[in-house]
Design a protein around this nucleic acid. Structure first.
Length: 185
DNA sequence: AGAGTGATGGGCT
DNA sequence: GCCCATCACTCTT
């Protein structure tokens, strides 16, 4: 299992959102397979970067492969990976994982046995991502979070995004067809 | 199965 | 002062 290369994250953001499906994300003893993503573009009214750089969204303008972890709804965090080598503020939100390894630990982190990773805030809690990971370089050897390549064949579904108030019509959500691990709503 | 809602706090006009 | 890329729970069909 090899880590994804720098060039993987330097491509077009939509393409990366699609290509991330099926890949493995690892933190400590836990591994999840990415089954749902959303793309957030620089000219996208739903993107945190839409109105330019601010204190909160600074990591979005950092180099591709950087983690952007933001705080939301007073109690949750969500995990994104910065994309596009132009540093224009684009990222892919990871919305759901299929738990692969360290499921006991995920259950402990979540305080329940099911619905461990089927939502952006849920997976962050399950695999122990915190605000400390905001801005870290996932391509760095020393990063505790890493993304690994995985070859697998499956169909991809492209739909509208979830839980946003602006940019609702854009078809920037992607998930693995028939996966029981995606967030529903 | 679907609709409604409280929790809870940082970000930004 | 309102908004929010959410979740889990309750109440209703």
């Amino acid at each position: 299992m090899n880590p994804l290369s720098k060039s993987f994250f330097e491509k077009n953001t939509i393409r990366i959102a699609k290509n991330l499906l099926g890949k493995y994300i690892k933190h400590k003893n836990m591994i999840g397979k990415i089954v749902e993503t959303e793309a957030y573009l620089h000219d996208d009214p739903a993107s945190h970067s839409f109105n330019g750089k601010t204190k909160r969204n600074t990591p979005m303008f950092d180099k591709p492969g950087t983690a952007y972890v933001y705080f939301t709804y007073g109690m949750y965090h969500c995990f994104n990976i910065v994309t596009n080598k132009k540093n224009i503020g684009e990222a892919v939100l990871i919305r759901a994982l299929e738990p692969i390894k360290g499921i006991k630990q995920m259950q402990k982190n979540r305080g329940r046995d099911d619905n461990l990773c089927n939502g952006p805030a849920k997976l962050v809690i399950a695999i122990g991502i915190t605000k400390k990971h905001n801005g870290v370089d996932l391509l760095n050897k020393n990063s505790s979070i890493k993304i690994f390549d995985n070859k697998e064949n499956f169909e991809i579904v492209q739909t509208k995004r979830i839980g946003i108030s602006k940019g609702k019509s854009l078809p920037h959500r992607f998930y693995v067809k028939n996966s029981k691990w995606v967030s529903m709503k």
